[in-house]
Structures are given as C-alpha cells and as structure tokens.
Amino acid sequence: MYNTQGEYLVLFDIEPKTRREDLFGRDNEVDSILNFIRGRSRLLAIYGIRRVGKTSVLRVALNEANTPYCYIDARALENDFTKRRFYQLLSNCLTELSIKWRLENAIRNITKIIRGINVLGSGIELNIEVDWRSVYLTDLLNALSKNLDQIVIAIDEAQTLRMLKGGFGKIDLTQILAYTYDNLSNIKVILTGSEVGLLHDFLGLENPKSPLYGRFIEELTITPFNRDASIQFLITGFRQYGIEIKMSEILDAVDELDGIVGGWLTYYAMPGYAE
C-alpha cells in the first residue's frame, strides 16, 4: 500500500519484514543476530511468543549479514512429519541458496561428491532435488562446509522438528546439530521457537541424554513492546499513512492490546480492519 506521496507503507503490514527501515523498534535484536553471525559462537536460539516479530528480526538480520544462508520455515511441514517432506523443504532451500547467492557452481561441485543430489536447469530456472532415500544430512553439511566460506542455516519454529519421522524411525536433528557444532566451524545455526518450552526441551541443553548437552548456545528472547514502544509504533505508523488520530484513542488501544507488533497492534491499525 502507498501513501499520498507515493511511499510504500509497510509498518502496518502483517507480512514479515526483510529490511531494517521497515522494522520498528528492533535494532538491538537485529544487531544481536548480526553479532552472532560475525562472531565465534555456533548456535543461536531465538525465543518469543507467536507474532512478536521473530521472523522479521531474523530475516532482516540475514539480509544484512551478507553471508549465504539457508532459511527453512518448519511450519511448512504442515503435519507431514516425514523425512521425505523435510527433504523437499531442504531442496527448496538449496535452490534458493544457489539462485540468490549465485552458488550454482558450488552446488554442482557438491553433486560430484554426493550421489542423490540432482541439479535441474540453470540460472533462475534452477531446481535442486535432494533424494531423501540416499543422502545423509551430515554428508551434505560436510560438502557445504568444504565448498563455502561460511553459511548460516536458519530454521523458524524449530520445535516442530521434534516430530520428524523417517522410514526407519525419527531423524534425530539434535544429533546432526551436535555434529555440526563440533565439526563444521563455518556453519552457523539459528533456531527460532514460539513454544519456548518445547524448543528448549527439543535441544536438551540440560539433559545429559541429549546430543547437545553441555554445548554453549547463545540465546535471544524477543519480548512484546512495552507501553511506550506500542504507543510510538502506532503514532509512527499512522503518520506514514497521513492519518491524524487522537492520542486518547491510541492510549485506549494500547491499554487493550498486548504489545504484539505482528498481531493485535498491527491488526488494530490496518485501515478498515477494526471498523
């Protein structure tokens, strides 16, 4: 949507943001992710309830980092918790990685090392297929590590991965994460979770039986806006639209809502939504 000056308006857009200038009040969180990517830590967990803005913060940081990344939204499993479906998401991720970062040659080099990865087409018509029956994830990660200077693997709503099942049982992603952590220093992993307890239990950092037990993990919690930030968010957004609104109305809205920028605050502010 555009305002009368022809400016594209995104502050009240419910879609995840990808540019810092479209993201309100989350500079510190974005910078924390950038510091992780540029630092020495291997694994970052981002916690926060649904619609608080985790995906926007993550996507903005990934786009600013200037580092090849593979982004997977685990919600796309859509209750199909099979190895086949997970590998479809992985194939899509590698395709996007190849096109966005022009890494087609690197991926083709990987296919020479690992059987079961097919590269179809080229350029923007490129499509990569990873055979779930023959490709081991640790082999794929090793090949990526050897052919790229650095890569970030980001998985949204990662607690969903605990449900994965393969043909002969579950894919133990914690085993794979532990292997990556211990052996592949140029691969960074970022996991987000809205069900904080489930993600924490899935990682098992305090569980002696978990493969990730004892590993150091950076953690970032994204909280709802406080009252002052919620007020400023609405003022700034309405100003983008050129709409004058009484402060009393804004205060009433903030007092009724909960500081969830991707949820009620945005829905309230969207033209026509609250009518």
Score class of each variant (00 low, 15 high):
L44S: 11
N35W: 00
F36M: 07
N66R: 13
R84Y: 13
L199M: 13
I114M: 11
E249F: 03
F238Q: 00
N28A: 14
S145D: 08
I176A: 03
K170W: 00
R84N: 08
N28C: 00
T266S: 12
N142D: 15
V119E: 10
I250F: 11
L9I: 14
N66G: 11
A76Y: 13
N226M: 01
D73S: 14
S194F: 09
D22A: 14
S122T: 15
N35Y: 03
R19C: 04
R115C: 01
I114T: 14
I110H: 08
S32R: 15
F216T: 15
G6N: 07
V261W: 02
R50W: 11
I187V: 15
L120R: 15
I217K: 07
I117N: 08
L140I: 06
Y71S: 08
R26L: 08
E129C: 00
Y87H: 00
L77E: 07
I14D: 11
H200R: 15
L9C: 15
Y71E: 09
D13F: 07
N186W: 06
L203E: 12
Y69V: 04
I190R: 01
A158C: 08
E275A: 14
T95Y: 06
P271T: 04
A154M: 11
L203T: 08
D182K: 05
F81C: 06
P211M: 10
E129G: 00
R26Q: 03
D252C: 06
P271N: 02
A45F: 07
D182F: 01
L58E: 07
Y213W: 12
E21Y: 05
D139G: 04
L34C: 03
F36N: 05
N105P: 08
N109S: 12
G167T: 12
R162V: 02
K146M: 15
N147S: 14
N226E: 10
D22H: 15
I250H: 11
A178E: 13
L94S: 07
S41D: 14
R133F: 00
H200V: 14
G123V: 03
F225E: 05
L148Q: 01
N207T: 07
I99A: 12
P271R: 03
I107H: 07
D73N: 15
A269C: 11
D131K: 00
D73T: 02
E218H: 07
V130R: 02
D228L: 12
I176H: 01
L62S: 10
C93Q: 01
L103W: 06
G272H: 04
S185V: 07
E256I: 01
R85N: 13
F233N: 00
N63F: 09
R215Q: 05
Q240A: 07
I235V: 14
A269V: 02
M1K: 01
V261L: 06
S98Y: 11
M270R: 09
V30K: 06
G204R: 09
L205R: 09
L199G: 06
G259S: 10
K188T: 06
T111V: 08
L44V: 13
L11C: 05
K100Y: 12
G167Q: 10
I222D: 05
R19D: 15
